[in-house]
Design a protein around this nucleic acid. Sequence first.
RNA 1: GCCCCCGUAGCGCAAUUGGAUAGCGCGGCGGACUUCUAAUCCGUAGGUUGUGAGUUCGAAUCUCACCGGGGGUGCCA
Length: 563
Amino acid sequence: MTTQTLRDQIAGLLRAGLEAAQTSGALPPFDVPNISVDPSRHAAHGDYGSPVCMGLARVLRRAPLQIAQAVAPHVPPASFVEKVAVAPPGYINFYLDPTWLAEQAPVILEAGEAWGNVDLGAGKRVQVEFVSANPTGPITIGSARNAVIGDTLASVLAAAGYGVEREYYVNDAGSKARKLGVSLFLQYAALLGAPVSLDEEIYPGAYIVDMAQELIAEVGRRYLEVDTETAIHALADWGIAKVLDVVADDLAQLRVHFDTWRHERDLYASGLFTEMLERLRAGGYVVERDGATWFSHSALAQDAVLIRSPQVIPNPEDRPTYLASDVAYLWDKLVLRNFDRAIYVWGADHHGDVPRVLAAAEAVGVDPERLTFVLYQLVTLRRGGQEVRMSKSSGEFVTLRELIDEVGPDPIRFMMLTRTVDVSLDFDLDLAVEQSDRNPVYYVQYAHTRIAGVLRKAEEVGLDPDVMGNPALLVHPSELDLIRKMLALPEIVTLAADHIAPHHLTTYALDLAALFHAFYRDCRVVDPDAPELTAARLMLSQSAKMVLARVLHLMGMEAPERM
RNA sequence: GCCCCCGUAGCGCAAUUGGAUAGCGCGGCGGACUUCUAAUCCGUAGGUUGUGAGUUCGAAUCUCACCGGGGGUGCCA
């Protein structure tokens, strides 16, 4: 498998060139700096360019152009490089060899869906924890963004050579669980004509009623005959298990699957939290004040509550904060289970918690560098131009399931991925439904479908669509541009994995589709009068189809044969 | 008050993370289907990258200040 991207190989050539220029005396001795190589934005600049000589100008006290001219002749030849050129004010540009380019079509095709894989991770184990929505109701559209980012990131990291596990953290401890239990119990009692009044907050969503009805069908009046507290606890457990089934099912509809479901409760039940509290205490990070237990760390502007005071919070189950279990959880991830890295996908509304978790990691002796937080901006939902305010506490939200039933998982996944995590997402429900055929997702999928159509056409006229043609016949600019783009996939995977930025896949997929459409426009594939050329172009089409499928699959989408 | 994110063409967003001439979609205007699927393609119009300073050979990208939008902010989840 490819171990080095083209970019890296070109950087290597440049390094050799810079060194050779010194040993030959063309340039005085200097330390070779980091060499940046960028894909060119304009064809006039070749395929790749490096500004490295610009930075050397100061060191060498010479004009960048002069340095570049001294280096370029010393860049060693390579099979994939047609020429090396110098351009003002001091760039060194690389032009890929057309013959070599054409030969990559079969190479890519033979790599199959492994095309695009790189060895960035070197087998390191990384855990991606995402969604982790409170198990108190169905998955919302807001959580869908989390789900898609996390899942796609996991796929990208796997392609980049990491050993990846997907995990859902179940917040089943404390007041959320109780609130669900209370909500169910009250609804259950009401449905059975034995209304109970309790002075506690409840979840008002309609799904509570459905669940209560289901409960009655399962157990009848049994929970009215036991102690109320016992019933609430039992119903909390029952409710969470039920909700998790629904959550898993909703997410499966979005093609998101988890390797592990880790329960917050277990972090307490196993004694891990107690252990970590002692560890923090021993390190001098714990302060008792106002009846509460605080985490105190010099990196934090303020102390953070670990355990709330009994005077303020009577119910013991409600006293530990998220930070308390987060400390245990990071230990669980990075020490007990020994992942090399842990990635947290969080909504930006939790950004304030990041410094606390990082400080806690440092305090218990875990290198904070091993934690990465992906903070994505929230989704605002619009319907008829109006913002739809959502919260499970108010019972008002649009579920993922409703949307999937209307538009299917692919447009949702693509739309959630097209933007960087840093921009908030306006999700227009009417638009998503009404204009679904104008969603860019179909542009990419249609390119795949179109290729499938070409291959079917080949069969219709009695040709073998799997024939390996002669790549030397691929000389049209549109053919070579398409190959160039296919060749870039390993770099895109590297980019997305390095920067934890899965949105690069969508941009790439659109570019690739556009270049296929251009090829389709310019180059007739199936031509019975030119069997050799047809074979070569069928091979190229197969390659393009495979790369499109690979990108779509990385994004968790389907690559349809027909639309 | 303090912290985080955003501000790029009428609208929604990219820009390989400091590189060359800032791209794409939608919308506008004008074209292309007896040809492998027109869910496509071609042409055209549209920019002082919020404002002002600074750093740098070079800034949409980094720094500072200001303006505007969103989110968070010691016992909520």
